[in-house]
Design a binder for these strands. Structure first.
Lengths: 134, 134
DNA sequence: ATATGTGTTTATATCTATATACACAGTATA
DNA sequence: TATACTGTGTATATAGATATAAACACATAT
C-alpha cells in the first residue's frame, strides 16, 4: 500500500526535504503507527519518481531523529514517538505553512480582509460544511 | 529605501529563489513601478544577509524574464511589464501558496477548530494589528 | 546453497552560495 | 581636460548541498 505522499519536481523545496517533511507528518499524526513497516527505498523511489539514494537519505534523516529504525536486509520501521512531540510538531508545521502562505499573499498586494476571504473559501474545501459545526 | 523583502536562511527554499520570487511580486503588483532604480547588488546583499553573487544571480534571472534591465556601472532598473502578465502572476502566486498550505493542513490531521485558531494567530503575525482595519 | 528481497557504499554530476579580483560609468577635482 | 575616486555590475575559482547510478553487503525464505 503506497504512502499518501505528494511531491513536486518543480518545487524549489528539495526532494528529500519534501518527502521527509511529509513522512514526519504521517508519523506524528499517527497515520503511520509505531511498528509499521515502511515501503522499501526502491518502492518509495518509484512512487515519488526519484532515486533510491534520495529515499535512503530521507530514511537516514528520520532515523537520526528517532522516528524510524532501519535494519539492513530487513527494512525500515516506524518507532515509538512520545506523545509530547506529536501535537507540537503538527501545530508548528501548520503554523509555518500558513505563515509562509500569508506572507506570500500579502506581498501580492492583497489586504487583510481579502486574504481572509480567500483563505476562508479555501478552508471550506478542506472542511466541507459540517452542518452542525456552527 | 530598503525593499520590503523577508527571507529565511533556515528555509529549504533556496535564497536566490526566495528573493527572486518576492521581487517578482513587488514588480508585478506595481509596488516597484517601471523605471525604478533597484538597490545595488551590494546593498541588497547586506539587506538580505547573503552574498553579492547571489543577488547578482537574482537580477540576472529577472533580466532574462524581461522584468528588469541592468547596465554595468550604472545599476538595475525595473522594466515596463504588460498588464496581462501582472494579474496572471499574482493570481497564480496566491493560488500556489494557498494550495501548498492546505496540503500541509490536510496531512496534519488537525481539526477545523484548531486550524482556524492557528490561522488567526498567523494572520496576526503577518498583519500586526492594524487597528483601523475593521 | 541460492534466490530475492532488504539496506549500503562509492563515485559523479548538477545546483546553490560564496570570496576575491576585475571592468565599466559617472563625478569630483586638480 | 585629464585623472583619480567612488559607485555600479562582472568574471573566475571554489566550497557545500542535492540528486543520481552502479556495484556492494546483509537477512530471510526457499
Amino acid at each position: 500500500m503506497p504512502l499518501p505522499i505528494r511531491i513536486s519536481h518543480d518545487s524549489a523545496e528539495p526532494l528529500y526535504h519534501q518527502i521527509a517533511s511529509q513522512m514526519r507528518s504521517l508519523i506524528f499524526s499517527g497515520q503511520l503507527p509505531a511498528g509499521t513497516l515502511l515501503p522499501s527505498i526502491r518502492e518509495l523511489a518509484v512512487e515519488t519518481e526519484c532515486s533510491v539514494i534520495t529515499i535512503r537519505r530521507v530514511y537516514q534523516e528520520l532515523e537520526s531523529e528517532g522516528l524510524v529504525r532501519t535494519r539492513q536486509g530487513t527494512g525500515t520501521f516506524v518507532s515509538e514517538v512520545e506523545a509530547d512531540r506529536r501535537g507540537q510538531y503538527q501545530y508548528e508545521a501548520v503554523r509555518d505553512a500558513l505563515k509562509q502562505a500569508l506572507e506570500r499573499i500579502k506581498m501580492s498586494g492583497l489586504g487583510e480582509r481579502e486574504v481572509r476571504d480567500v483563505f476562508e473559501q479555501a478552508l471550506r474545501d478542506v472542511f466541507p460544511s459540517e452542518e452542525g459545526t456552527r
